Lab assay of single mutants.
Amino acid sequence: KEFRPGDKVVLPPYGVGVVAGIAQRSVSGVSRAYYQVDFPGSRSKAYVPVEAPHSVGLRKAL
């Protein structure tokens, strides 16, 4: 896996977040693995496909 729990990442347009782990989510009846990204200071979460994280701009924070 490219990202691990605890990694600081950037996800446009949300900003800097932390990978909380990998979650299985069902979309249109198909279960897939997603990185769960939490954003400190907020209750917001984002789910990014493990198979294509760069397709939505997910990258490691510098």
Rank of each mutant, 00 (worst) to 15 (best):
K1C: 15
K1A: 14
K1F: 15
E2I: 12
E2Q: 11
E2F: 11
E2R: 11
E2N: 10
F3G: 00
F3I: 05
F3W: 11
F3P: 03
F3T: 00
F3E: 01
R4D: 03
R4M: 14
R4I: 13
R4F: 11
R4S: 11
R4Q: 11
R4C: 14
P5L: 12
P5N: 06
P5Q: 09
P5F: 08
G6C: 07
G6F: 03
G6P: 01
G6L: 03
D7Q: 05
D7Y: 03
D7V: 04
D7F: 02
D7M: 06
K8R: 12
K8S: 08
K8F: 12
V9E: 00
V9F: 03
V9T: 04
V9W: 02
V10H: 09
V10W: 14
V10F: 14
V10R: 04
V10G: 01
V10Y: 15
L11P: 08
L11T: 01
L11Q: 05
L11A: 02
P12Y: 11
P12E: 08
P12K: 06
P13H: 10
P13A: 05
P13C: 13
P13K: 08
P13G: 15
P13E: 05
Y14R: 03
Y14M: 07
Y14E: 00
Y14V: 02
Y14K: 02
G15I: 02
G15Y: 03
G15K: 04
G15D: 00
V16S: 06
V16Y: 15
V16L: 15
V16A: 10
G17I: 01
G17N: 00
G17S: 01
G17Y: 02
G17D: 01
V18C: 09
V18E: 04
V18P: 00
V18L: 06
V19S: 03
V19Q: 00
V19D: 00
V19A: 00
V19G: 00
V19W: 01
V19P: 00
A20C: 12
A20K: 10
A20M: 13
A20E: 07
G21E: 05
G21M: 09
G21K: 10
G21T: 06
G21S: 08
G21I: 04
G21C: 10
I22V: 06
I22Y: 06
I22F: 05
I22H: 02
A23H: 12
A23I: 15
A23F: 14
A23G: 05
A23S: 12
A23K: 13
A23Q: 11
Q24G: 04
Q24H: 13
Q24L: 14
Q24F: 15
Q24W: 14
R25S: 06
R25K: 10
R25Q: 06
R25L: 14
S26D: 11
S26G: 04
S26W: 14
S26P: 08
S26A: 09
S26I: 14
S26Y: 12
V27Y: 09
V27F: 11
V27M: 07
V27W: 10
V27S: 06
S28H: 14
S28E: 12
G29F: 03
G29P: 00
G29R: 05
V30P: 15
V30K: 09
V30Y: 08
V30E: 09
V30A: 06
V30D: 04
V30I: 10
V30C: 09
S31K: 11
S31I: 14
S31L: 14
R32D: 03
R32M: 10
R32L: 07
A33Y: 14
A33D: 12
A33F: 14
A33K: 10
Y34D: 02
Y34N: 00
Y34A: 01
Y34P: 01
Y34K: 00
Y34L: 02
Y34Q: 00
Y35T: 00
Y35Q: 00
Y35E: 04
Y35S: 00
Y35C: 02
Y35G: 01
Y35N: 02
Q36I: 15
Q36M: 12
Q36F: 06
V37K: 01
V37S: 01
V37W: 01
V37T: 01
V37R: 00
D38H: 11
D38G: 06
D38M: 12
D38I: 15
D38E: 14
D38T: 13
D38K: 12
F39L: 03
F39V: 02
F39M: 03
F39G: 00
F39Y: 02
P40A: 09
P40G: 11
P40H: 10
P40I: 08
P40T: 07
P40L: 10
G41A: 10
G41I: 07
G41K: 10
S42K: 12
S42I: 12
S42V: 08
S42E: 08
R43T: 13
R43I: 11
R43Y: 11
R43S: 14
R43Q: 13
R43F: 12
S44K: 14
S44Q: 15
S44A: 14
S44W: 15
S44V: 15
K45T: 14
K45E: 06
K45R: 14
K45G: 04
A46K: 10
A46E: 05
A46D: 02
A46L: 09
Y47Q: 02
Y47M: 04
Y47L: 05
Y47T: 01
Y47V: 02
V48Q: 01
V48R: 00
V48I: 09
V48M: 03
V48D: 02
V48C: 07
P49H: 03
P49F: 04
P49L: 11
P49W: 08
P49I: 05
P49V: 04
V50R: 02
V50G: 01
V50S: 01
V50F: 06
E51N: 09
E51G: 08
A52G: 08
A52W: 09
A52C: 15
A52I: 06
A52N: 14
A52V: 05
A52Q: 07
P53R: 06
P53T: 13
P53G: 08
P53A: 15
P53Y: 08
P53I: 11
P53C: 10
H54Q: 10
H54E: 14
H54K: 06
H54A: 10
H54S: 09
H54T: 08
S55P: 05
S55I: 11
S55D: 10
V56P: 04
V56E: 07
V56G: 08
G57A: 05
G57N: 04
G57V: 05
L58C: 05
L58H: 03
L58G: 02
L58W: 03
R59Q: 08
R59Y: 10
R59S: 06
R59N: 05
R59D: 04
K60F: 11
K60M: 12
K60Q: 09
K60G: 15
K60L: 15
A61K: 07
A61S: 07
A61T: 07
A61N: 06
A61E: 08
A61Q: 08
L62D: 14
